[in-house]
Simulated assay, not measured.
Amino acid sequence: MSTELILHHYPASPFAEKVRMVLGFKQLPWKSVIIPSVMPKPDVVALTGGYRRTPVLQIGADIYCDTSLICEVLDHTQPEPVLYPPHLKGVSRVFAQWADSTLFWTAMAWNMQPKGLATLFAKLPPEVGSAFLDDRKAMSVNMTRLRTQDAAPAYRSYLRRIAHMVEEHDFLFGAEPCVADFAAYHPLWFTRVCTPSVADVFDHVPAVLEWMDRMAALGHGRMEKFNAQDAITVAAGAEPLPHMSAVFQDDHGIALGSEVTVAPESFGPEATQGTLVAATRTRYTLRREDPRAGVVNVHFPRIGYVLRSAPP
């Protein structure tokens, strides 16, 4: 049974940076598979069956989608240092959900203004930038995206609120980081590292930059380069983990063993189709078979995802 952590990601992905930082916090060894930032992503889809957001965590023949779920898996894999301290279990999750949604989309609207885009794609051919923007437009077809002029005052306000928190503590909720720190860090990291031409938004919140420096010092853990075909071979040679202890929670009138689809609520509308083999209080698990990857279990969090019966 393979227990190696394989992260499918690309360097400039902010959500991948969130997971890379958690790996560093926990000093975990992991294998790095670099994937395209835009479609097509045939090697990713061979594992996920359709889901194409970044990153994806693979452990053998089990594929974990969405960083909220990936963080829980990593915390279970390596319980110390703790990502969800008992006294912060509720507030840290609520804050992380806000940071991964409202804060993230506000930051990205600021980052993707013309000056930021020029910096992001400065060393790449023009067609690369065009392909990226077209791809993200397709991913956000059902979303209302903020304009820069609307995002600017909100981003500044959010940064001031974060500054108030880290002026009192080294990290958001105390002396040690928790899941909230990693969720808040990654969109700000993109501003500072990937679009530094618009990083003057931090000029009036030096405490935020000091907190970011403390976060960056955690590093990325022990990374080893790996390639996509080898990762698919790992999946093909492994068996998905059993779910004997999983308690079925039925909120849809869809029985285990049914053919279903799971798709994000909004960004990245592509669905994964498979057999529903688990539906717990917090996640869905679909079993599917791929000609290259073999039989895999693909896991999604319930929050942020939509379960439906597969079309006949």
Rank of each mutant, 00 (worst) to 15 (best):
L47A: 02
L286V: 02
L256Y: 00
V247N: 10
L188I: 06
Q27D: 12
M212V: 04
R214M: 01
T67C: 12
D170A: 02
A151G: 07
V22T: 08
E259K: 08
W110D: 08
S245N: 11
A118D: 12
A184Y: 03
L159M: 12
V19E: 13
Y84L: 06
Y155G: 00
R156H: 09
R161D: 07
D200Q: 09
A12Q: 14
E127N: 07
A122L: 06
I59M: 14
M108S: 03
K123I: 03
Y284T: 00
V306E: 14
H186N: 11
A99C: 10
D250M: 04
P126D: 13
L117E: 06
F121W: 11
D150P: 04
V298T: 11
L47C: 04
V234T: 10
P177G: 12
R292Y: 08
Q273D: 01
G221V: 06
P291Y: 04
C194H: 10
A271P: 04
F267E: 14
P311M: 00
L218F: 13
Q249P: 01
E17N: 08
E270K: 03
E167F: 09
T148P: 07
T67D: 00
H252A: 15
E167L: 09
G60E: 12
L256I: 05
T233P: 06
H8W: 11
Y64N: 03
P177D: 04
L117V: 11
E168K: 14
R288E: 02
L83E: 08
T119W: 08
A293T: 02
R53I: 01
A255I: 01
L103Y: 04
M215N: 00
I162P: 00
I70D: 07
A263S: 15
Y10T: 01
A118I: 05
H76K: 15
A231I: 06
L124M: 15
F267N: 13
I34L: 11
R147Y: 12
M244L: 14
G253C: 14
T233Q: 15
M215G: 00
P29E: 01
N111M: 09
R136G: 02
E176F: 13
A109Y: 00
S266D: 15
G304H: 07
A99N: 05
A228T: 07
F25P: 00
F248H: 14
L57W: 14
V19G: 07
W211G: 00
H252N: 14
V277Y: 00
R53V: 08
P125Q: 11
A236Q: 14
D213I: 03
G90L: 15
I63E: 01
Y51T: 02
S101V: 10
W110R: 11
